[in-house]
Amino acid sequence: MRVLPRSRAAEDAPRTASGALSVNVRISALTALAAVSVYCLCCLVYNAPGSPAKDRIKGPVTAFMEPYFWQDWQLFGPTPGSSDDLIYLRTRMKLPGSGQVVESSPVEIEQAIDRSPHDFPVNPTKLPGVLLAFDAAANRYAGIAIKFKKLPAARRDAARKILDKQFAPDFEEMRRFFSAQARTLYPNAQIVSVQATFKNRPIIPFSERYEVPRPKEHQQGILATSWMDYVPGVAQ
């Protein structure tokens, strides 16, 4: 029988006495230990749930942790969505002969993209992540915009402008993405502009999952973008 050592740790146990520690090692170890202690403390505070105590030290801790140690583990403990997201794309195109502009009927594009990982489950595409980001942006925008209804009319427009400016990069991404999608849907058309409507469809609640007849899943509107000019040349 081959006998393996119980533990390699015993073999490689420290063979040096404390006197063997050189000044260089001692200084570098102490410096490194101090840096590690600071990181550990900051990391614990950074990840702690919000509290008045955390508010007092949040500033310096955030300055230390961001951007290279930025972390958000709430993503790992999410409250799962209770609805499926849908995106309806409409396209305005010029007819080749008359130059008349026509509008397509809304086409739902998200569910097909969300199912695209099934094409190669071993190493699925990351494309659904793009729409997940768009849905999150649309929900955030709608959530803030809905609060503007309480503002006086004079302030409402100014607030909307600020919000649009904040979300400009998100809408620019959407404009380019939906332009590429419209090009895929209508490859030979002369596309003028695109428009997207974000909706969601609630998942049948757990308590009603075996109900007969099956409960209806009503779609709810979240956000309808304005018509966005078509962007040519986006990679397909």
């Binding site: 709430q74 790992f76 403990g77």
Partner: peptide, 15 residues
């Protein structure tokens, strides 16, 4: 820290 935070956020969620 990640696992503990993830567990904490889960345990505070209704679902």
């Amino acid at each position: 820290v990640l696992y503990f935070a993830a567990g904490y956020w889960k345990i505070t969620g209704k679902v």
